[in-house]
Structures are given as C-alpha cells and as structure tokens.
C-alpha cells in the first residue's frame, strides 16, 4: 500500500505492507533510528512519537493509520544549527538519563505532558510519565529534567 505523511516537516511517501507498524516504518524505511523499540507490546514508551501533536506509542499503531498525519520524532525536535529543544536541553543539564535507551520516548512524552500541564508539580510529572519505563535512573533526574524543561518551554528562548 502507498502511504504519505509529513515526518519532521517533510512530506514522505512510501510503499508499506498493511501490517507494517509505524515504528518499523520510521526506523527501517525512513532510517530514523532515534525512536526506540523496548518492548514491542505498548508497555514501555520507548517508541513514543507525536502524531498530529499527540504522543502515541508507535509500536502500537499501524503505518497505514498515520496516512496524512503530521509525525514528529526525536530527530525533528532540535532547532537550527542543532540547537536542542528546551526539553532535550533540560535532560542534558539535569542528566536525566544513564544508558539513554528510554530517553527519546521520555522526551517526546514529557513534551506532550507539558503541552497539557504547563507547570506540572513533581507529583503530576511522576503520575503522567507512567507510560514510560526507565531501567536505569530511578526516575529522580528525569523528574527534575521534566520540571526544568517545563520552565524552559514556558519562557521563549532568547
């Protein structure tokens, strides 16, 4: 089947099987390997991307369901000359990662969280990140990073 959609601002068209998962299309056909596959069962959130502005688990969506959609992956976040998105910057600054495997999903999920809760409490962050699992950090620095990222997102970059 032929599908087309916008990925990180660019229109892409491709031939896929109806059963191709969106995450497989993104990683294997578009070669955007920043989106990770942790569990392939919709549990861990490593594959989180934005579809039409909303965070979804791309291992639990068919590529054909994204026909005509606007897709944003971790590769599409940084601005001109590689300037990090405020949430990425906050993860770097607060060391919100160890091995980094969960990080792309955490960042995409955290941005969706802040879009819905512009000034989240620590409690809100912990509750609303429950779809993203991290096997390394114990979450403390991730929570700190999301709190800082939310603050950076509220104040426009200089």
């Amino acid at each position: 089947m032929k599908i087309s959609m916008k990925v990180n601002g660019e229109t892409v068209s491709a031939e896929v099987e109806s059963r191709t998962l969106l995450v497989a299309f993104i990683r294997e056909q578009l070669r955007l390997t920043g989106t990770h596959v942790g569990c392939d069962t919709g549990q861990c959130g490593a594959c989180t991307i934005h579809m039409n502005g909303l965070a979804v688990k791309s291992c639990n969506v068919l590529a054909v369901q994204a026909e005509g959609a606007d897709i944003l992956t971790i590769e599409g976040l940084a601005g001109d000359e590689g300037r990090l998105h405020p949430m990425q910057e906050a993860f770097r600054e607060h060391h919100g990662l160890q091995c980094g495997f969960c990080t792309p999903g955490m960042v995409m999920s955290a941005i969706d969280l802040v879009n819905n809760h512009p000034n989240p409490s620590e409690e809100t962050i912990r509750a609303e990140l429950d779809g993203n699992l991290c096997r390394c950090t114990g979450y403390h620095n991730i929570v700190k990073a999301v709190k800082a990222g939310a603050a950076y997102m509220r104040t426009p970059a200089p």
Partner: peptide, 9 residues
Amino acid sequence: IGDRMVRNM
C-alpha cells in the same frame, strides 16, 4: 485509563 499515550489513541 492506561497512560497518556494510550489515552491519545
């Protein structure tokens, strides 16, 4: 229900 990504779909 579930988590925010599940609720978006």
